[in-house]
Design a protein around this nucleic acid. Sequence first.
RNA 1: GGAGAGCUGACCGAGUGGCCGAAGGUGCCUGAUUCGAAAUCAGGUGUAGUGAAAGCUACCAAGGGUUCGAAUCCCUUGCUCUCCGCCA
Length: 442
Amino acid sequence: MQIAPFSFKVPAVMLDIAFLRQNADAVRAAIKNKRVDLDLDALLSVDKERREALLEIEKKRARKNEIAQLIPKATKEERPTLIEEGKAVKVALEQLEPTMAETQKRFEDLMLRVPSLPRPEVPIGAGEEDNVEIRKVGTPPAFDFKAKDHVELMTLHGMVNWDGPRKYAGGRSYALMGTGALLELAVTRLAVDTLVERGLTMVIPPVMVKERAMTGTGFFPLGREEAYAITADELFLVGTSEVPLVSLHCDDTLDAASLPIRYAGISNCFRREAGAYGKDTKGLYRVHQFTKVEQVVFCMPDEEVAEKEHYQLLGNAEAILAKLEIPYRVAIACTGEIGLGQTRKHEVESWMPGRNDGKGAYNETHSCSTLGDFQSRRSNIRVRLPDGTLAYPYTLNNTAIASPRILIPLLENHQNADGSITLPKALVPYMNGVTVLKPKVV
RNA sequence: GGAGAGCUGACCGAGUGGCCGAAGGUGCCUGAUUCGAAAUCAGGUGUAGUGAAAGCUACCAAGGGUUCGAAUCCCUUGCUCUCCGCCA
């Protein structure tokens, strides 16, 4: 009787171990700059141990196979001797193999923690303050009245039931009501239409996935605390549709001609926000469940191609913000702020007048990343190149819209003195022609 | 949830203990033939680890067991299909 392992066998690993051996210094720098908790030398020594053990086992196995082939041809007299030796080899292997398995496991655990190498243009830094602003687009509105934050506005409009859900669903829960719910549908549909028009294929993927999808996309093992687990079925709720979208091609060998593949996924996203207790508890900035339209691209493993795709994804998100008439800025994230697998990340921060004690602030609403072959290696996604060889395609992703967070700048920037909201023109058709949202008369 | 059938290489499909990393076919590649193509003929054609190389090792859904030796026998799990039940 054996319990199914709650982990999957890693078919491929992050950076090629051969690359690690030959470029230890570059990897060490990435570990340091990305502030990853990993001892590369420990990994290299486990690797050495593993290869030595492997060599010994393979020698024994070779002999085992040799004996097995000799026995049928052997004479009656030779046979008992060979069988004896076969037994001895078998016993020796039975001793070596568990040790090998243990070493291999240690090796794989460490390999899953190896970061990808940041691109040269990524600024080296520790925290948010080291991100480098690239441009500001649009002008924050100057209100000649006391502006309300989104909590006040949404309450005024009856867009949210704040208290009910907290009683039966816990902290950071909410229910979008009336125009609040309609707005979420409107902005997500606007985002979807924008992306489809730009050639992305719409996907509605599963939001409950197996562990391998989480590991394959790089969210596990380090982000395990952040995911909701459905233990009875060994499934996890995804924090972004990036997980099922990338996993859509796990174990596939893609045809080079099929690239780039560009997906637009929509899903509910679930995050425990385990490291954020007490942070942003007021309002809808940080919640456990939200809706997100996400862009995911698979492209040829070529830095130039990837860069082009990256800026296209960024452009798509900016186009959506332009339609919503929300001022924003774009920053490139420093090494300390980009994830394990990301080689480059841009953050798009929307202007939220109610943040920073009503003085306003730019806060993240989009995150645009290139991951190189980090995810395709882990997910065993390959591409057959024209010359017949196999390679790992690059993956990229970017938010298109995440609600209700996006409702914060949307409502706050477009508010009027009387608490009404003038909807951006592009949104009007999605709200069935309504141009101004009036506060609910109580 | 109950009962049954199945899972072999890019695909189809053979294979009930050693001669099987795996017949045969299809597809694909190369060459011959052709003005060119089709047809035909010949050869080649999985992935990964390790090694300078020759080679060696692993992989027939996954994991475990039996055996000197497992694609082949046994157990467990997963997935697919069929029937029954339940159901938006």
